[in-house]
């Protein structure tokens, strides 16, 4: 039984109901329409007296294929493909102060709260026997994820409120990355006390396409032939339509060569 569960049991046994680690998430569902810029997400909750909170936003394990370059004499060429799986598709970490000030290294690793811990779950295909090459590929993978905004360990964005008997309320406001594709994600809260994780809570936050984008994505999957013919016809008509419009706009200005 984990330490967090033991703490929970002792609290309940004593008739004390702990405050909600995650009290509210706004919006509950992120709707993706035609014009989508990401979303402003607000998470509110209460950290029990004497504790702090770390929040993470994670996507489920992804599998991505990459070309891997290697040096052959003076030139760099694609040496083959690498399939990287097991790492979360999205990982954002937030806290009121640096995570290393709150948790021990073992505890950070045990709760998958830093790059090194996440990389322990990563599988490379084909498997890399050379540890240095494996570490280099993992580091490059994280660099790619950071560059597109789907991994962020920057963290100190949780605002702690005035403490009360119940605990210390906190608020996190962040911009949902627009490059995170539609899927169900988890907002996870860690209650941190004395350098250990005392309790955890999580809430699902789905990102769901709506309206025209949803209809189009469904059509591309379920009626592929109709979608393909429509794509060709619409594109061709758009091209001829623009030509028709410009011809009429520039009528009388033709110059022969």
């Amino acid at each position: 039984m984990s330490v967090a569960s033991l703490v929970m049991l002792s609290l309940y046994a004593g008739g004390v109901v702990p405050p909600s680690l995650i009290r509210s998430v706004t919006p509950r569902v992120i709707e993706v329409g035609v014009f989508y810029e990401g979303a402003n997400v607000r998470v509110e909750g209460v950290a029990p007296p004497g504790s702090k909170v770390i929040l993470t936003v994670t996507g489920s394990a992804s599998a991505e294929a990459f070309n891997r370059k290697a040096r052959y004499g003076p030139i760099w060429l694609t040496a083959g493909k690498v399939r990287i799986s097991g790492a979360p598709s999205l990982f954002l970490r937030f806290s009121a102060e640096p995570v290393r000030n709150l948790l021990s290294d073992d505890c950070i690793a045990g709760n998958d709260l830093d790059e090194a811990a996440l990389m322990n779950h990563v599988h490379l295909e084909p498997a890399q026997k050379d540890p240095a090459l494996r570490a280099a590929l993992q580091a490059d993978y994280v660099a790619l994820k950071k560059s597109d905004g789907t991994y962020d360990f920057a963290g100190s964005r949780i605002v702690m409120g005035q403490p009360s008997n119940e605990g210390t309320p906190y608020t996190l406001e962040f911009r949902w990355p627009k490059k995170a594709p539609p899927a169900e994600y988890q907002i996870h809260a860690f209650e941190v006390r004395d350098g250990q994780v005392a309790r955890e809570a999580s809430v699902a936050i789905p990102v769901v396409p709506t309206g025209f984008p949803a209809w189009l994505a469904i059509l591309s999957e379920s009626r592929a032939s109709l979608y393909g013919i429509s794509a060709v016809l619409i594109s061709a008509l758009a091209g001829f339509g623009i030509d028709f419009l410009t011809t009429h706009l520039f009528r009388g200005k033709r110059v022969s060569h």
Binding site: F66, R68, A70, V82, S89, L137, Y141, L144, P181
Partner: peptide
């Protein structure tokens, strides 16, 4: 190269696991 990995061809759903 700054990064030896670059996105590879393959099925787009690799980038969209829950689609």
């Amino acid at each position: 190269p700054a990064n030896v990995l670059s996105p590879s061809g393959g099925h787009a759903m690799l980038y969209w696991p829950h689609a």
